[in-house]
Design a binder for these strands. Structure first.
Lengths: 315, 315
DNA sequence: AATTTAAATAGATAATTATCTATGGTGCTG
DNA sequence: CAGCACCATAGATAATTATCTATTTAAATT
């Protein structure tokens, strides 16, 4: 038997014929004409190579082989019905995978977002890829993930970026630092202090550098450290000052103070980034939707960006 | 999703693509060209309405939906492979149903034949319909069974009948009957005896009547009894003489004698009958084949008809 | 025997499929 | 950067399918 030319439709028709025991009745049920069904049965019989139906007591009944085929056909249709249901769920984003590329800085808020999302769509599987900006950028250009979280989104026409979470960059000093006594400070007063900074290319560093150069300022005592945590601890130990995302200061802030320098905290945001040239899976769309509507439930309300609705508006 | 236009072939191709992770490789395996497969994947994707494949690490990998489809496709193909095997068995007549219509007289040998056949083809299911000649004839004309066993097959061009078992009709008398003393008898000497006979239309009766009228003989003392067993017992009790199939005399012959009348036993046969206008199922062919080759194993060899080979020769 | 119902066959057609060759784009690899 | 391997698209065609209407044949019922 050559299965190739068997189609699901044919099996569907066959099942109807067997169930009704009549070609005409099957035709009526399927909104076909009687000859159509008759012909299809003929073709099916030829494909199988054995008689499938025989008249018995005025109805068509299956032969032994026909009955086996009926069972096989039923199993097969049932299996594909299941698939259809699964598919429908996937269509609604009930179900599926999302791959998320995240820059290291953002890793502190991610767990709360995903925690909330898990309750919203328990069957959606999220794979998280955390890396420094360079690695995530590379993943972005290789299209390895569905969605990305950046502080400074890459540029390009195929990039779709929406600010979702505010990310104030604070200027911090160790508790007891001289500048902490002051009511107000101008940044120029700090230019001889030592600053602990992330590597160039990191979003925090970029924002700070931009701010500095816009004001024609230059620092002459800096040290590069590649981890926000280490920077935070180092500042606490009195090794210098730093500009850090407020999110990394959630804990262990007892030994730190925020300096009242004009212009700080620097306002920046985290952006949810996707590629315009790639269709988002329904599961990914569900995540976007969740962020647009329920982010405030899992993030301190003050940190949520102003216009989350933008996420849902096509552009 | 509309399953109708899904064909098994398409799923087969899809499975290859998923397994090899490459359209070109799948095409080679299936002896198709690469664009063919490419196009088919496109069509399949359209049918499902969701992306199924995505490039990953230089190969094509399934999406979540694609993977579900792959599993469904695998299940379905597996199911139909099973069916294929079942079908192959049925093709060899390993398997299936045979319906057999048998006249009452023959019921004594049927169990032995079917017993042997059961060992030959244990999975073939035989349904036996036993009736008097008239009922079996009716079944024959309604095509209710696959094969029939008659003493006098019906006539007609669409009837295919082959003698398979000899059926000598013996003239019997009660032990101690006057005629039993004689070395040889002429039938005319018995014409005043009472004869117990089956109803007109039964094969035994027909054979006897034919024999009588060929010789211009007529009986003037007959009684009709519709059962061979009752006739046999009645003869034993001295109620008269009878002509009976040797097969019905297997047991209880102590009180009977066979009269040495010229021309007896009447030679007749049982015929295996089928309809030329109806294809025999493989299972039925297996039964025919069994009779042609192994009948001697379950029937006393002297009773097997001469040319069983005729069963296997198409005509 | 007449009527009704169901199945098969014939004949037709528009749509679809399966398949090809040829070509263009993309992304690795030496 | 030239070459290769891979996928996608275009364009073409012969075969097949799905479907119809109309008719014939067969079976069942009055």
């Amino acid at each position: 038997m050559d299965l190739r030319h068997l189609s699901f439709r044919l099996l569907q028709v066959y099942i109807q014929v067997v169930r009704t025991g009549s070609i005409s009745a099957a035709a009526r049920n399927l909104h076909l004409t009687q000859p159509t069904v008759s012909l299809q049965m003929k073709k099916l019989t030829e494909t199988v190579g054995e008689p499938l139906l025989e008249p018995r007591h005025g109805k068509l009944a299956t032969t032994a082989v026909g009955n086996e085929l009926y069972r096989a056909a039923g199993d097969v249709m049932g299996r594909f019905e299941d698939f259809g249901h699964t598919l429908a769920e996937a269509r609604q984003g009930q179900w599926g995978h999302v791959k998320l590329g995240v820059v290291t800085t953002a890793k502190t808020i991610i767990p709360r977002i995903l925690g909330g999302f898990y309750h919203y769509r328990p069957k959606v599987d999220v794979t998280l890829n955390i890396g420094n900006r360079a690695r995530v950028l590379e993943r972005f250009s290789n299209q390895e993930d569905d969605l990305y979280l950046f502080s400074h989104p890459p540029t390009g026409t195929h990039v779709r970026a929406t600010a979702i979470i505010r990310n104030p960059l604070q200027l911090i000093a160790p508790k007891g630092h001289w500048a902490a006594q002051r009511q107000a400070l101008d940044f120029s007063e700090l230019k001889h202090e030592r600053f602990l900074m992330r590597e160039p290319g990191s979003a925090t560093r970029m924002a700070f550098d931009t701010w500095l150069s816009a004001r024609g300022l230059e620092l002459n005592n800096t040290q590069q450290i590649e981890s926000n945590e280490v920077i935070r601890l180092s500042v606490a130990e009195g090794l210098g000052l730093a500009v850090l995302s407020a999110h990394t200061l959630e804990e262990g802030r007892e030994k730190l103070v925020q300096l009242p320098v004009q212009g700080f905290p620097l306002e920046s945001n985290w952006y949810l980034v996707s590629r315009r040239d790639r269709r988002l899976s329904q599961a990914a769309q569900a995540l976007v939707h969740y962020m647009a509507t329920d982010l405030a439930k899992c993030i301190q309300p003050g940190w949520v960006a102003d216009d989350l609705g933008k996420l849902l508006r096509p552009d």
